[in-house]
């Protein structure tokens, strides 16, 4: 029943075609089953949330998508093709960018340099050309610099362009990390708890940015978040996980009334 409603749900933005499909993903660490036979899809242009109690396997799922973990079973389909097991930097080159739960920025580099590094996969000039600062390499650098500045404007962080990010307050670091991921012009953007540890105001700002990214660039976003209010407000569809299994999948209104989900969150005996 909910599956039918699910398939009819078309996001506000984008074509609604399937961008990524995960089929029967299982991930084990030694004897521990972190993800057990989970399947879901992510449609072009939507904001897809993954929620669940602590230890439900949400972050593991994001790490599977971004290539940091390799599931023992299951298939990952991206843009209509089955993706072989590949290392994270190759996944990034395919157009999947991410942020981390505990900010992973280049702390000694400036905001601008961090965001420029996000464009790594889009810069093409050869090693020799760069070493010699040859014409094309220089032109490329200028061109990418302009794009980076546009992202800095978009996020309203002009004032900290030249500051090493390690010295910035937490909320701003989160914003720079989002900027670095955006800089890659990703087809799929993964956000691991983008609002963790933020106050109400910062959360509102971040929600705004996420919605704007989705609206203005049409970027498909998959995110993990604990704040239910935020998740219900901004997501098109939600996957709910508990103990490594998928226990719900659908639009926010459906999830709100799903008995399994209510049980998982209120801690009814399993």
């Amino acid at each position: 029943m909910s599956d039918k409603a699910n398939s009819e749900a078309k996001p506000k933005n984008g074509s609604g075609e399937i961008l990524m499909e995960l089929k029967g993903i299982s991930l084990r660490f030694g004897g521990v089953l972190a993800i057990s036979d989970v399947s879901f899809d992510i449609k072009e242009g939507e904001i897809r949330a993954i929620i669940g109690p602590n230890g439900a396997g949400k972050s593991s799922m994001l790490n599977v998508i971004s290539g940091f973990y390799h599931p023992q079973e299951g298939e990952i389909w991206f843009r209509g093709e089955r993706r072989p097991s590949m290392r994270p930097h190759r996944v990034a080159a395919q157009g999947i960018a991410r942020t981390f739960q505990n900010i992973a920025l280049f702390k000694r580099m400036t905001t601008l340099d961090n965001i420029m590094t996000g464009r790594m996969t889009l810069m093409k000039s050869s090693f020799a050309a760069q070493a010699l600062w040859w014409g094309p390499a220089e032109r490329e650098e200028t061109e990418h610099r302009e794009k980076a500045e546009r992202i800095i404007d978009f996020l309203g962080i002009q004032a900290i362009r030249k500051i090493p990010v390690g010295t910035l307050p937490y909320g701003l670091q989160k914003r720079v990390e989002l900027g670095r991921a955006l800089a890659a012009e990703p087809k799929l953007l993964l956000l691991d708890e983008p609002m963790a540890g933020m106050n109400v105001e910062e959360k509102e700002d971040m929600s705004r940015f996420i919605l704007d990214v989705n609206d203005e660039f049409g970027t498909t976003i998959a995110l993990i978040e604990h704040d239910m209010g935020v998740v219900m407000d901004i997501s098109d569809r939600i996957v709910v996980m508990d103990y490594g299994k998928k226990i719900g999948d659908g639009r926010p209104a459906e999830i709100r009334n799903n008995q399994h989900v209510i049980d998982a969150y209120l801690g009814v005996a399993h």
């Binding site: 971004s66 940091f68 290392r87 994270p88 930097h89 190759r90 990034a92 080159a93 960018a97 991410r98 981390f100 992973a104 920025l105 280049f106 702390k107 000694r108 580099m109 340099d113 590094t117 996000g118 790594m120 996969t121 670095r180 991921a181 890659a184």
Partner: peptide, 15 residues
């Protein structure tokens, strides 16, 4: 420089 700062983050941007 990115690799010198953070291996994980470097991987995530395609290095």
């Amino acid at each position: 420089r990115a690799v010198a700062d953070d291996h994980q983050a470097a991987l995530s941007v395609g290095i």
